[in-house]
């Protein structure tokens, strides 16, 4: 199962269509707080995580996961221009950074990357 966390409902819908089209099971959450419980679900293979969100944002969720040693791989996706992959990779869980708007191909290669790792 792949967990999509983004407050933008349309992005969530887009990713759900993409992922389901590829045969993935998809769970969604609109902020870090709601994602927190689901992230710890052993079924969860990977998280596609937005940074800017209300309540608990992406970075805060990453810190929480790190603290609790939850090992799930995270693909960060952001509309912010000045976020770099190296700074995001300082979080253990982060495997890849996607700048919005990204394509289905970008997403799939990011998923392949965590699988390979």
């Amino acid at each position: 199962m792949i967990l999509v966390v983004d407050d933008d409902k349309r992005t969530v819908r887009t990713l759900r269509i993409w992922l389901e089209g590829e045969g993935f099971k998809v769970a969604t959450a609109e902020n870090g707080l709601k994602a927190y419980g689901q992230a710890k679900d052993p079924e969860c293979q990977c998280i596609l995580l937005d940074i800017t969100m209300p309540r608990i944002n992406g970075v805060e969720l990453l810190l929480l996961l790190q603290e609790e040693r939850v090992q799930v791989p995270v693909i960060i996706m952001t509309g912010l221009e000045d976020v770099t992959e190296s700074e995001m990779k300082e979080f253990k869980n982060v495997t890849c950074l996607l700048h919005k708007p990204f394509s289905i191909g970008d997403m799939l290669s990011a998923i392949d990357m965590y699988k390979a790792a």
Partner: peptide, 21 residues
Amino acid sequence: ASGIAHDFNNVLMPILGLSSF
């Protein structure tokens, strides 16, 4: 501008994503 880029990237996500799908 940075706020606008963020907003723009966000709205482009479904536009490009859904149409290309």
